[in-house]
Design a protein around this nucleic acid. Sequence first.
DNA 1: CGACGTAAGAGAGCACTGCTCTCGCAAACA
DNA 2: TGTTTGCGAGAGCAGTGCTCTCTTACGTCG
Lengths: 233, 233
Amino acid sequence: MSKTANSRTIARDAQTEAIKDVARRLIAEKSVSGLSLREISREMGLVSSALYRYFATRDDLLTALILDAYNDLGQAVERADARVARAGASARWRASARAIRRWATNNPHEYALIYGTPIPGYAAPTETIEAAARVARVLGAILSESRKVEAKDAPKNSKRSDVGRYLELDSLAAIMPGVAPEEYLKALMAWTTIFGFLTFELFGQYVGSAKNLNLMFDRVVDELAVSLNLEAT
Amino acid sequence: MSKTANSRTIARDAQTEAIKDVARRLIAEKSVSGLSLREISREMGLVSSALYRYFATRDDLLTALILDAYNDLGQAVERADARVARAGASARWRASARAIRRWATNNPHEYALIYGTPIPGYAAPTETIEAAARVARVLGAILSESRKVEAKDAPKNSKRSDVGRYLELDSLAAIMPGVAPEEYLKALMAWTTIFGFLTFELFGQYVGSAKNLNLMFDRVVDELAVSLNLEAT
DNA sequence: CGACGTAAGAGAGCACTGCTCTCGCAAACA
DNA sequence: TGTTTGCGAGAGCAGTGCTCTCTTACGTCG
């Protein structure tokens, strides 16, 4: 094997992970904008220049944290979904949505890192896009399953849709196979509403309008389930 | 009059406004995180400490910019709505939604300033909350009008709702008088979806899923109009 | 109209940041 | 065993937000 498992690369990976752990802790305590490499180094008993052996730039560190956050969230949702896999699309939808919110409220700063204002030199690498798709893949699979079970009722109405003019049909078909393209928009809207809700909740836009966001979120998820035709299980 | 119109306060207000203008320009060129008081001062031919006569802190400057951005957006939407005031709720809804998106895409960094990750010492002052409500007020008024016109069809189904357990009925009733509380959730969801869409669009989450966001947005607005029962005008 | 008071800007300075570069040293590899 | 390679230390540069003191100029009011 080419370059795996040198005892040097093992130590390197461990140190890299340690840096990210400290960074995560500091972000949780303060915020992402308050994260400084020098404070990380101080915390680790290192000199600041040493960190540059592992991350060429502060933004590179943040990019790595973004990737981890996407994967952490993705894994949480995948597990929540798997836990109720046999319970039908409606239950899976609810469980997954709640898992998303649970992760977000437990890790608000990491949520802001991936769904908040992007860092100036954003340019999300492919790796990041891939990790970001994990959550979408779970939701897509749920929709797919629900359509497989009941391949009955004709696609609502036959108003032929121009969905191909504004959506990437191929990638969406890969995420939710078996779902009619006419339903893609509603699926994307549901996804948008979930994360729009969390962004509004965590960033304070619901102050004054809502007082019990746990309950409100559940009701929103209910409404979305209806609009996605997930109820007849 | 207590303290208005001293020629000194006039000059002061002018200078304050000039600082904000330069700040806005720099934010548009770079980004909010790249905004530095020293660069503003350089741009204005001042020394950096002079700015502190006008804003005690960088965050204070940002807060002022946030307030202005909310009001700018609010005004844009109010005007767009007023322009089609007599055309019925459905047309007003579309015009207002498009005005929101137009403002957002024209001022992406200012959008990020108000709907992106909040600045650490957030604590939105009442003034800000008030300004933020302007857009909501327009959308609420549209919904109100549509319900006034057709006070007919009974409130959908009579499943008695627990909406009072999680929403602030009083403030919402003030924003959309005449609308049944059972509809508040859908209204908030529509609002959430609009801004969730823009956040996803501007922050890059639709990359790979959508290719024509103009058209997609219009379709989303259509769907929301249906879900809000705005079509029968 | 002239003296006073006040506010604006200049300038130096502090503590902090990201990042660079060079220099030893120790561990891995041949 | 000798050599390469990578890690951390340390000094330093340019930039930041913010504070403090000092001077100057301009409005205000007796």
